[in-house]
């Protein structure tokens, strides 16, 4: 167990070092990542200033989109297609002989990159916060921030496992890129990336609450914004943790059978 923890730490460190080498490119990537949220925010502010009756006030809108960039980086995930490629071109075979679970490569790469990205994102967010300082009022309740932190961690886990499970389907499906395009579309619609889920027509609310994409991005922001009452909060965390566990089980099952068929083919 301890050796695994040490190994894991080592691999994270290695990934941090590798990522730092490309820090300038990553900084550019961070600037790029805030463009869409800022643009969405500007549009929403225009609508708000026209007197539209939104369920969010200006300061909530600013907070939402500002932290949207942050949560998106925390939970961002892109392992699936690499994984699928590794399975298809047989790179998996080389790593299977090593005494490290294959998923470690991806988890540590993911964490390592985030360790580099978040400090790079921070100054950008501060600049944006200063631009909108007159309308920004972050919540002061520490409990909400703690809840937000927990929700972000589980959001990252959910997003990662969803991506990983999807990529693992490459054991059976030759080309998974179509699947990922569909996932990207659903993510764009249902995670709250462009418009907060609270703006959807009320009839959709029960569906929005149970679909997984909410728990990869929107839910932590809802926790922080304080738009959820006690019961909704508990339900939300239950769904989020539930999705993490179920997706983890999916990963285990897929790999159990996937490796069998992989070895049978003998690539």
């Amino acid at each position: 167990m301890m050796t695994h923890v040490r190994m894991f730490g080592r691999m994270v460190g290695l990934n941090v070092t590798m990522t730092i080498a490309y820090r300038a490119a990553f900084f550019a990537l961070m600037v790029s990542s805030v463009i869409q949220p800022v643009v969405s925010l500007l549009v929403m502010l225009t609508i708000e200033s026209q007197g539209a009756d939104l369920p969010f006030d200006r300061s909530q809108l600013v907070t939402y989109y500002l932290l949207l960039s942050f949560v998106a980086i925390c939970t961002g995930c892109w392992v699936g297609e690499y994984l699928a490629e590794g399975i298809r071109d047989g790179e998996l075979s080389n790593t299977l002989v090593r005494p490290v679970p294959y998923i470690y490569n991806f988890v540590t790469n993911n964490i390592g990159e985030k360790i580099v990205k978040l400090p790079l994102l921070l100054p950008i967010l501060i600049v944006i916060a200063l631009l909108f300082r007159s309308e920004l009022s972050l919540p002061s309740d520490p409990l909400r921030w703690i809840g937000f932190g927990i929700a972000v961690v589980f959001a990252a886990a959910t997003a990662f496992l969803l991506d990983f499970a999807l990529g693992s389907l490459a054991f059976w499906i030759k080309d998974v890129s179509g699947l990922f395009r569909i996932k990207d579309l659903l993510q764009g619609l249902l995670a709250g990336q462009f418009v907060p889920l609270a703006l959807f027509p009320p009839a959709f609310a029960p569906f929005l609450e149970v679909q997984p994409f909410r728990y990869t991005l929107s839910f932590p922001l809802e926790v922080l914004a304080g738009t959820l009452d006690g019961a909704a909060l508990v339900r939300g965390f239950a769904w989020q943790i539930g999705y993490s566990v179920v997706l983890w089980l999916c990963y285990r099952v897929i790999w159990h059978y996937g490796l069998k068929s992989y070895e049978a083919v003998g690539r």
Partner: peptide
């Protein structure tokens, strides 16, 4: 697929926003 998905995404987004306002600017 990508082209159609983009259309669906943007059209849906605007459909949601325009619930709250008859026009934007």
């Amino acid at each position: 697929f990508e082209g159609l998905a983009q259309v669906v995404l943007v059209v849906t987004t605007f459909a949601i926003i325009y619930q709250y306002t008859p026009d934007i600017a």
